[in-house]
Amino acid sequence: MAYPDVMAHPTIKARKRNSFWRGIKRNWGLISLALPGLIFVIVFQYFPMFGLVLAFKDFNFGKGIWGSDWVGLNNFKFFFTSDAALQVTRNTLLLNLSFIILTNLVSIAFALMLFELSRKAVKLYQTTLFFPYFLSWVVVSYVTYALLNPQLGVINHLFKQLGFAEINWYMESKYWPFILSLAFLWKNIGYSTLIFYTGLMGIDKSYYEAAAIDGASKWQQVRNISIPLLTPLITLISVLQIGKIFYSDFGMFYFLTADSGALYATTDVIDTYVYRALRVSGDIGMATAIGLYQSLVGFVLVLTVNFIVRKINKENAIF
């Protein structure tokens, strides 16, 4: 016997529509606050997605986006068959992975230390740590050049005083993974520390009071209270960072290295490669194809990591 679909009844549908509009009217104040941000996201994040069609076209300014010739996967082929494809992909993955691991570990350690300080001391150290985050990579590149200049740099001058051989830093690629990691850590440590410190501030103080009454040391409180309760936040931050692992901080990789060709073996990433390709050939279709490739891989990585986290601990997964 077939049963009628109750939810398809016209009266039920009308009630649902009325309930929807009543909800909007009731929450109009909150909706109006969210509206500017929503419009910004739609205009600058969703509308440009129509331009992804350029990844499959030989873009011609005269013909426009829709009138340009369709070339299928040729733009992707240009990148994946180039000699630099494997190199820039490897550099992008390994360098960004080292940034994620190093920055998160040091930030968590700093947040735990700040959590034990007085509020006045925390303000001083937070300001000191956070200041580099606001500096432009252009400014940082000049400071770096003053330190690493082959003839007049502070580091080489110090090496000379100590009897060590001077190093032509901008011609030796093997040192730059460490230099870039330290520069990224120095610039982003304040921002990441603030996030984890805020997470620690949200932990109920009664846990620490009970642990102190039971005679737990500071290290035991960190290991059994702080880290476990901070794990969901650490997981969330890590998953979001892994989702953007194929995107690099262009300013750092371009300005800090002075775009030295001798360093490409360890510092050339997808973003700098695309920029140089655009500057030389002006191939917008190829650049769009690589951007789409980065987005798809990031999306797959987020789903994969979230799936793994969900298998380990369902509560720590994003969705």
Rank of each mutant, 00 (worst) to 15 (best):
S173W: 12
R22G: 03
I12T: 10
G51M: 09
A8R: 11
I12Y: 14
N75Q: 15
A109G: 10
L263M: 08
K244I: 00
W169E: 02
L303T: 08
K123F: 09
E315P: 00
M113I: 11
T231R: 15
R90G: 08
S217R: 10
V222D: 07
V106I: 12
Y3Q: 13
F319T: 08
W28F: 15
I290L: 14
A211L: 00
L162M: 15
L278E: 00
F110Q: 00
Q161M: 09
L94I: 12
N313V: 02
I213L: 15
K123D: 14
A258N: 14
K314D: 11
N313S: 04
I65Q: 10
R22W: 10
N104C: 06
I237E: 07
L114E: 03
N224A: 09
K187M: 08
L86P: 00
A121N: 12
F20R: 08
T272E: 02
F164I: 01
A146F: 13
N18M: 15
W70T: 04
S32V: 14
A289T: 05
E116W: 03
Y197A: 00
L95N: 14
F80P: 04
P10A: 09
T193M: 14
G285P: 04
S238R: 02
P228K: 11
I242M: 14
G291W: 10
T231Q: 13
N149E: 07
F79N: 02
G37N: 06
S217M: 03
Y46R: 06
L105F: 11
W186H: 09
M1A: 10
G190D: 06
G285V: 04
F59M: 06
T127A: 13
I308Y: 10
N27R: 15
T272P: 10
T127N: 15
L135A: 12
R223S: 14
F110N: 00
F250S: 01
I179T: 04
Q220I: 00
T288V: 10
T193E: 05
R119I: 13
I270H: 04
L240D: 07
F61M: 13
A216G: 07
V41L: 11
D204P: 05
L73R: 08
N313W: 00
Y133C: 08
F196K: 11
A8G: 01
L292H: 04
I290Q: 06
F253R: 02
L194E: 00
R279N: 12
I189D: 01
S98V: 10
Y191N: 09
L30N: 14
T198A: 15
A146W: 13
T304D: 02
R17E: 05
Y293F: 14
I39L: 15
N168S: 12
Y125G: 04
F78W: 05
L263T: 01
K123Q: 15
S82V: 04
L135H: 05
P10D: 08
A212G: 07
F255A: 13
Y208G: 03
S217L: 05
R15P: 00
F40E: 09
Y275T: 06
L102D: 02
L135V: 07
T257P: 06
L147M: 15
K218D: 09
I179D: 00
L278D: 03
N168Y: 10
A210I: 02
K187R: 13
F253S: 03
S248Q: 12
Y247S: 13
F196I: 04
T231V: 13
G215N: 09
A277F: 12
Q126T: 05
Q294R: 13
P232T: 05
